[in-house]
Design a protein around this nucleic acid. Structure first.
Lengths: 187, 187
DNA sequence: ACCTGAACACCGTTCAAGT
DNA sequence: ACCTGAACACCGTTCAAGT
């Protein structure tokens, strides 16, 4: 966990970046591409890929780490600029924009629930939502007993929506429904 | 599609059943078991398995067809016995009870959104929910513009919940939230 | 310290040969 | 009509040999 202590040798660093770059596109195109084919496309031996990413999950996690980071950083920025409920809703919208990488992201977040190692990614994500929820609670606008993990689970429908106009309309409808459900009636 | 026209030869029928029986347990234990190992455990050659189920998806679908059928049949029964909103809620509860097979069920339903062949399974499921929703709408208790597919998508959080006490509590909370969200405020 | 690529056990899938 | 099981191409993963 945390950050690596020693910097990578420059050739290793380059390999790592090339692998991630190739993997991002390959996984977006079809989530079942073989790791060997990714290694080949990145111009490295399979052993090199495995040195950097000991298994498929690790590679997928590496690919999505950046995008998740962006999402996490967005939360405090939105809170600073908008009323609490608006910030929450805007964050939902952004979450919906992860087009082709959606499915992989879902896998990572889901796996993170069970897998210790992956909590590294799951944690910040839950943290971002928690931030948004707390700022809503401060003005008593959210129902009691709902936590950040609840919301992330609810948002999971996003990964299963088909892209396009119809999908966006559906997402909008469900966001509205969830926002209504979140707003206190039990308070 | 629809039903097969000719009955299977009796040995073929037996093989089919043995394969499904073994597959049900194997897939529940770990979703990634190889088809060859399932064939072996069922005491048939790999070719036989492929004759009955041309790919992994077909096998998984075969396994879950029965459980989905039960769920679908439950909808009208609940409507007959309970007020509309109660029937809907009770159906949700039953949906939550598919313990170890949850994840596979999710895969089937998700794949069905994109795959023509699988609509056979997806359709009745959506139909059951539609039935429940219509009976609620008849008494104007459901918000406008929400359809059965919306609800099935929302229910998707169930597949990602961890089993046990904590999971059940979470499911209860989220069901309440969704039920509140479903109830008309926009009407 | 890192990379290469041959090698291993295993996978999904096919198909000639049987009954 | 259906089953068997050897066979094929390919997969994830390892590791001795190189730089």
């Amino acid at each position: 966990m945390a950050q690596r202590t020693e910097p990578l040798r420059s050739d290793a660093q380059q390999n790592r970046e090339r692998i991630l770059e190739v993997a991002r596109d390959a996984l977006a195109t079809s989530p079942h591409v073989s790791l060997n084919s990714i290694a080949k496309a990145a111009g490295v031996g399979p052993g090199t890929l495995y040195r950097h990413f000991p298994n498929r999950q690790a590679l997928v996690l590496g690919v999505y780490r950046q995008e998740i980071g962006q999402l996490v950083d967005l939360a405090p920025a939105l809170i600073a600029k908008h009323p609490p409920l608006t910030a929450l809703r805007l964050w939902f919208d952004r979450l919906a924009h992860y087009g082709r990488i959606k499915h992989g992201l879902a896998d990572v977040l889901h796996a993170a629930i069970n897998d210790q190692v992956l909590r590294e990614t799951y944690g910040p994500m839950v943290g971002a939502i928690d931030l948004l929820l707390r700022s809503c609670e401060a003005s008593r606008k959210i129902r009691d007993g709902v936590d950040a993990e609840d919301v992330l689970l609810l948002m999971g429908f996003l990964w299963r929506i088909v892209p396009g106009r119809a999908g966006e309309a559906r997402a909008g409808r469900l966001f509205d429904l969830i926002m209504d459900g979140l707003q206190a009636r039990t308070n």
